[in-house]
Design a protein around this nucleic acid. Structure first.
Lengths: 109, 109
DNA sequence: TTAATTAATCGTAGTTTTACGATTAATTAA
DNA sequence: TTAATTAATCGTAAAACTACGATTAATTAA
């Protein structure tokens, strides 16, 4: 009600949300798991594997790339996608901090 | 085209995506951080703290609750929200498994 | 009882997401 | 050069998300 709120969303909160959001779709989880578990990082192989069209998968790849979780490298007529180790480490750290900041003493119901 | 794809999104992939998606908004990150860092779990205090209307925050709380991350308990005229320790543990475990399944040997670009 | 407080829900407008087929651009092969 | 392959982009329809004010329901206080 017209009262000035004491916080705005911080950069850190926005970054966390952005990373989580990028992971918030089963197709993108499937892409990440594919990149981790398969030997391939070729775009066409991902398209082959997932039950979605090429253009849709391309869109999902773009979204993962835009937040930095994966990076792509054109190699001839094909494109290779890999997890970005630095952003992966950022995500790992972010989760560790978030997870460990909760303790059962916060529990009130 | 018309080829049967070899995987569908698994339950596990859908659950991961659902949890990440719920965390994929700065307001919901702010809510979680509030519940962790403040002594309060009262709905009204969250509304007081965030730069969004009461109805919008109620919507965000509902979304976090629907995937199980938080739980609510009505106490008189107020409602108390807390992180659900079991789902928090599920999330923690999920992240540990996902994070550790990646190693630099996956790196190809 | 009546009034006040709290939070959920309703209705809705505007935006974003997701999906697809079609097209385009770039590279490689014939 | 021409044809084939690969993946990005365009255009678009349908669905989901986000935000808000208004209303409702439930409880507590007067």
């Amino acid at each position: 009600m017209g009262t000035t709120k004491s916080i705005k969303f911080s950069e850190s909160q926005n970054r966390k949300a952005e990373l989580f959001k990028a992971l918030g779709h089963p197709a993108r989880i499937a892409i990440i798991e594919f990149l981790i578990n398969q030997n391939s990082c070729v775009c066409g192989d991902i398209v082959e594997e997932l039950p979605l069209s090429q253009s849709t998968i391309s869109q999902h790849l773009k979204e993962l790339k835009s937040v930095g979780i994966i990076k792509g490298e054109i190699s001839g007529v094909k494109t290779c996608y890999c997890i970005d180790e630095n952003v992966w480490a950022e995500l790992d750290d972010m989760m560790k901090v978030l997870m460990s900041s909760y303790s059962l003493k916060n529990k009130c119901c």
